[in-house]
Design a protein around this nucleic acid. Structure first.
Lengths: 232, 232
DNA sequence: TCTTCCGCTTGATATTTGTCAAGCTCGGGA
DNA sequence: TCCCGAGCTTGACAAATATCAAGCGGAAGA
């Protein structure tokens, strides 16, 4: 048990400030599991039996209705997902599938709820994480309602550039069709939006994006902390 | 202090299961205030100094970007709003204005955060409320991305009918232009969507809506628990 | 190295949604 | 009672976005 596979997630905001004892109890019935690419992990509507932590690989959250499908988020390691369904003991609102080979830690939801009541550090972390997710989703809604597709893409690129830590170039972390769906448009429309952004300082080659004129792109995109600063 | 104006909110999910002592401490520095119609209560980006509880009247949450504005929600009494910004001590993501004359209870955010750490009943309620809001917002995003404007309106009407408790008729609880903005369309487009829904069993006269053929509307709207059942 | 296939791109076209302008309606105030 | 005006509706048109079809190209496998 010492040096367990769960050590990798101990530093996550969600677990960092809970007692060792609580962490041990939380992970006692948890297990680490590997999944191949393109495997559906979760079907929306299923009961939320486990809190999921992505340790390596990549997972897509998506939703369907009436034969249509939309990508809601791409999860990168190391982070948790579907915390809200877990704490409410409610059905998942989104489906999840691996995009590539992935390893996940599955923690019984029951344990999460129990330890939440006993460990104030964990409780605070859960509240913070939920509030953060809520605010991220509000931002997504604002993006969808206040911006057209070119503006959504332009600001998405600026955010990704910021995340990459680079000054001008970065790699798209998801396939373009996934990016398109995430941004609420078709792949064809994304392709055209990229073309349109050439006039605003963006160059694309495959998944390789170069912001050749940052000021110009900013002038077009008008990024705003209340829509684009997902960290806060 | 006995029979204080805060008794009206004690039964809310958020406050119902906290100790009397905690509730007293929470409301010690709180105050009840009346506001006229059309007054801006909150500007997005401001620090979240108070948790707001609407006691009577009506409040609209909205957001702006680049000269555009969209309605995010209409708050009806008795309920809280902007809990997430309060617990994170972060700036508001949405602005708020009264739609009609309203009374609100303002609770210092600092007190909310302090008592959260000391009262497990309150902490549980906050987590539940945050998770509920998060899930409601996910549903809103799914609505925007998976449905066109007629489908959004059709399902909105079915939800409002359910809330009203009636079998066929109900009143729109917000002005049509607000409904339009909430649903992510223009007032003109809403007007046309209402016309289109005549063919699916909907009749409108001002703010008075009659579902003359419920089965027909359901057949068109295809409501789904994971998109439309906001309570859960 | 060649082949195949999947995803991306492009063009043509259709549908959806927004914009602008005008007229209507209904309720409140003089 | 009449008048006024905000909000709603309608029509004509424009812009944004989706759909369909075809072709391209690069990566993985034979």
């Amino acid at each position: 048990m010492i040096d367990s596979p769960f050590g990798a997630v101990r530093h996550l905001d969600l677990f960092a400030r809970m007692s060792d004892e609580s962490f041990l109890r939380l992970t006692r019935a948890a297990y680490l599991q590997s999944f191949p690419a393109q495997l559906q992990l979760i079907a929306e509507g299923d009961p939320a039996d486990f809190l999921h932590v992505l340790v390596s690989g990549r997972v897509e959250l998506f939703s369907t209705w009436n034969g249509r499908e939309t990508s809601m988020a791409t999860v990168h390691p190391v982070s948790t997902f579907i915390l809200a369904a877990t704490v409410r003991d409610a059905p998942y609102l989104m489906s999840a599938r691996t995009v590539e080979k992935s390893r996940l830690i599955l923690i019984p939801s029951q344990d999460v709820r129990e330890i939440f009541e006993q460990d104030i550090g964990f409780a605070k972390a859960i509240v913070n994480e939920l509030a953060r997710c809520y605010r991220a989703t509000i931002r997504t809604s604002k993006n969808l309602k206040l911006r057209n597709s070119q503006e959504r893409l332009a600001n998405y690129l600026l955010r990704q550039l910021g995340k990459s830590g680079n000054r001008t170039r970065f790699e798209l972390l998801a396939e373009k069709r996934r990016v398109a769906s995430y941004l609420g448009m078709t792949p064809e429309n994304l392709s055209r939006a990229f073309n349109a952004l050439k006039a605003h300082g963006v160059e694309v080659d495959g998944s390789h994006v170069t912001i050749v004129d940052h000021d110009k792109l900013v002038a077009f995109a008008c990024p705003h902390a209340l829509l684009d600063d997902y960290a806060n």
